[in-house]
Simulated scan of single mutants.
Amino acid sequence: MVGKSPITNNLCASLKPRYHFSTSNNTFFEREPFFHAPTEAAPDGYPITRFISLASYNNPKKQKWIYAFSIDPTAAPAVVIPPGTTASPLSLSNKKRPTAPSQEFSRFSTDGAYAHRGNKRRRAAPPTPAECFFCLSSPNLATHLITSIGTDAYLTTAKGPLSTSDTYPSLGFPSHILIIPLTHSPTLASIADAEARKNTYDEMQRYRQALHDMLTKLASCKLGAVTWEVSRAGGVHTHWQFLPVPVDSIRRGLVEAAFKVEAENERYPNFETKDVGDGTEESSDFFRALIWAPPSTISGGEADGDDGSAAAKNTSLLLPLDASFRFDLQFGRRVLAKLLGLGGRMHWQDCGQSEEDETADAEAFKKAFKEFDFALEG
């Protein structure tokens, strides 16, 4: 057991700190690092805790009483269980034996679906729709966030949204939206049936266009949007994230620059300006950012071009992903949080809401989107 105090143990289990320090009289002790199982609220990683108990200063046994370490507070949790770690012993305080998490909880694994037990490595069973947080058949689905269900895809509001109802007063609701395929698949390209793949991609694009149409009307062409995706063959259920951004930031090139500069800072490969459609022609995993700006003015349903107004803008940025570097799954959110001055909301875990507030935000979005929701037709 990590500690004798149930209160301390429960606090550590809740906070999931990188390091947990304690003291003892004459003994230094460091146990194996332990991982915390993913949850519905945090399904994309395994927070790791290192427990260290330091001996007292100037102890007679000359045991270690000081410890030096470095820590990067912005580093993302591990997306697979690192070798040499154990399941968290803290859950034992509730007299429940922790179940070693299988790869179904890691939507974007980096080296395949492996789980570790002792010194053995085994292949984890593929997750089923019943174990997926995005499948409509799953008991884990947060149904109160769902705002529209089409034939091949559906919309939900984001849990722990980056934007709030105050971010864009012309909207009046958090407009951080997920566009999710109904098909349980790690990437669009891995949907086996070609017709189903095409229909899914087309409907996701149709939802994206409907969101653009909503912004054009409600924000009077003052808001554009970024839609981003992490496409990994080792994932579980692919999806797109959608967020409005000020149109001026797009037209001045600030959004593109923000993604490229952050990638350079992280020593990622360079972004390419490339439209890959449903991704079937790509030989590697990728991160994609689709950047859209509406026409500056609307006349008769189209942009005016003779008076110097700007036409609609569409840009697709692609970042190839491979095993040569570790990609931060929150990269897209982090870039936009910095760009929008929402650094305090960079981590979605810091943006939790009550279910009542989440439901209210989803209903506000549904009301605004109703006019553009093609799923309601017929």
Rank of each mutant, 00 (worst) to 15 (best):
P139V: 04
S190G: 05
I177T: 02
D193C: 07
N270F: 11
L136D: 05
T187V: 11
R206V: 03
G172R: 06
G160K: 05
S231A: 14
A192M: 03
F134S: 03
E203C: 13
T216L: 08
M214H: 04
V255I: 04
G224S: 12
A257C: 05
P181I: 07
H212S: 13
F173I: 14
H184R: 08
T156Y: 02
T164L: 11
K159W: 02
S137F: 04
L155E: 07
T147P: 11
L155Q: 01
H176M: 01
A153G: 10
H144S: 14
M214W: 03
H176I: 00
L188I: 10
A196K: 14
A189D: 08
R232W: 06
N140Q: 12
D193I: 04
L215T: 05
P246Y: 04
L218M: 05
I146W: 04
W240D: 06
S138W: 11
G224V: 01
G235Y: 02
H239F: 15
P139Y: 10
H239I: 09
I250W: 02
S165W: 08
H176C: 12
V236S: 05
F173S: 13
Q241L: 06
A225D: 00
L243C: 10
S165P: 09
S138F: 15
N270K: 13
P181Q: 02
F242R: 00
E266M: 08
A158N: 10
R267M: 08
C221D: 03
I179A: 06
A219R: 04
E256G: 11
L136C: 06
L182M: 05
A142G: 03
R206H: 13
S138Y: 04
P186S: 08
H237C: 09
S175I: 00
K274I: 08
E266F: 12
Q241F: 02
K217V: 12
